[in-house]
């Protein structure tokens, strides 16, 4: 049984997840969940962001990390291989996901970092197609990848295999336009499970709120809900709202349909769209919504029946 589960996670990390994403993306498209918003510019951007990191960037990063770690941490290879699986899993899950929470949060809260993450929020739809939609530099500096690679070098690789597999499934499912969490809110007897789930992990409801184009409807919370695998970080730091509704519209109000190459490769390539944040003389952050009001943990969006 253990070998079977192990083989699932091994295949998931090699080819399983991209295949799951492609199949889900085709189903979403077939069901019309992209609502005719997937125009040529969005299609090219989504496909480039899906393919280039998997084929070129990630393998190169892994290769250089494997070369660099024995030099940076000489004599430390496998020194923590005695750590029992349960504790290794716990250590990696916290280290990896908390680091990604911070990487993500800082890209929203430090104005000079916003444009590296903007591409992920520009899509006016949710779905598999934009789960990997990121600026190239955001992908390259994905900090928790290096931390997890270092912990793998130190001997926690077996636990990392399961954490990264589980995390990929949770985060891609949270981006999907297939709202898998809906039955948990609809059936009263499932409410206790929903209560735990929405506090522990990112669900489509809480993560879609992060991709909403407004904060004013009581559902959207695009300057919060930064958690990726775990939502618990948003609860601890007061940056989240828990909602069981889905935003009416997604994306970014200041989006000017910038060219796919500018979104993928800014600041190497700039947008020609006037006034764009990605243009040569554009504003750093065009959206000036005050953040103070958002930084408290709220549950107003829960319906009375849901609480």
């Amino acid at each position: 049984m253990i070998k079977f589960v192990e083989s699932i996670f091994q295949n998931l990390s090699l080819w399983g997840l991209p295949v799951i994403m492609i199949i889900t993306g085709v189903i979403e498209f077939g069901l019309g969940l992209y609502e005719n918003k997937w125009n040529k510019n969005e299609r090219i951007l989504d496909i480039v962001c899906f393919v280039i990191p998997k084929v070129v960037i990630r393998p190169a990063m892994v290769y250089f990390t494997l070369l660099a770690l024995p030099v940076l941490l000489p004599g430390f290879k496998g020194i923590f291989s005695w750590v029992p699986f349960f504790w290794g899993f716990f250590i990696i899950a916290v280290a990896d996901d908390l680091t990604q929470y911070w990487y993500h949060r800082l890209h929203h809260q430090l104005p000079w970092l916003w444009r590296f993450h903007r591409t992920h929020h520009s899509a006016p739809y949710m779905g598999m197609a934009m789960a990997s939609r990121q600026n190239l530099l955001y992908t390259i500096f994905f900090s928790q990848i290096y931390l997890t690679a270092a912990l793998t070098h130190l001997g926690l690789g077996y636990a990392a295999l399961f954490v990264t597999g589980l995390k990929s499934l949770i985060t891609t499912a949270a981006h999907s336009s297939i709202k898998w969490d809906k039955p948990f809110y609809a059936k009263r007897w499932l409410h206790p499970v929903a209560w735990v789930l929405e506090r522990l992990i990112s669900t489509p409801a809480t993560h879609h709120a992060h991709h909403a184009d407004t904060n004013e409807d009581g559902v959207g919370h695009y300057k919060g809900n930064f958690g990726n695998m775990f939502f618990i970080w948003d609860i601890i730091f007061g940056t989240g709202i828990i909602t069981r509704k889905y935003p009416a519209s997604y994306g970014y109000k200041e989006y000017k349909q910038e060219e796919w190459y500018a979104q993928f490769l800014w600041p190497i390539f700039k947008s020609k769209k006037e006034g764009s944040e990605l243009s040569a003389n554009g504003p750093v952050v065009a959206d000036e919504l005050p953040e103070n009001a958002d930084l408290t943990f709220k549950t107003e969006s829960l319906t009375p029946a849901a609480i």
């Binding site: 916290v94 908390l98 809260q109 601890i236 504003p283 000036e288 103070n292 930084l295």
Partner: peptide
């Protein structure tokens, strides 16, 4: 657009809390 002082303070406070969570 500048980083607001209150946001900067919250970031600093939360990073310190995070160090304890990493060690937990």
């Amino acid at each position: 657009m500048k980083l607001q002082k209150e946001t900067a303070q919250k970031i600093t406070r939360d990073i310190i809390i995070s160090l304890f969570i990493y060690a937990l």
